[in-house]
Amino acid sequence: MTEEIIIAGFGGQGVLSMGKILAYSGIMQNMEVSWMPSYGPEMRGGTANVTVILSDERISSPILNVYDTAIILNQQSLDKFEPKVKPGGLLLFDNNGITRYPVRKDIQVCVIEATAEAVRMGSGRVFNMMVLGGFLKLKPVLEIENVLKGLQKSLPPRHHHLIPMNEQAIRRGMELVKPFTVAS
């Protein structure tokens, strides 16, 4: 099994840390992992993205042009990465601020209203964990207990008291995610 994932959004949305938690969780599941932050000129535009690869085999290129899954958190990233999902792949997006919606019909498109839910809960801190939960619901490539172990590894000990809150957010994300119907 190899899962090639791009996570893209604004800096500050927890894009890189979501990737890091995915990578740590992969290690907890005895997988090979790679985490490659966006290193292109687009960093200057205020967007952040990270390529995460989880695999049972040795990972070849950490830099990719097409992906099994795109997790998209803003409009620019949707425009940029929707065409780069492999046919049959998954596009998961948060609809906050989205005005041009996905159009492809040869991929699975799902939406998660994680920003809205985070506002309702009065905390933006676990927004990215809700999105991660949504992804894991759609593609259960990692077991929840390994994700929790990954969180433990990824967070400094002074933040370990926040792990239950993160777990709750992951589970809430699993409930929130739903299919998106592409307009014909």
Binding site: A23, G26, V33, W35, M36, Y39, P62
Partner: peptide, 10 residues
């Protein structure tokens, strides 16, 4: 190079 320097792996 910057790729190998900046990327994370197991």
């Amino acid at each position: 190079d910057g790729v190998i320097g900046q990327m994370m792996e197991k």
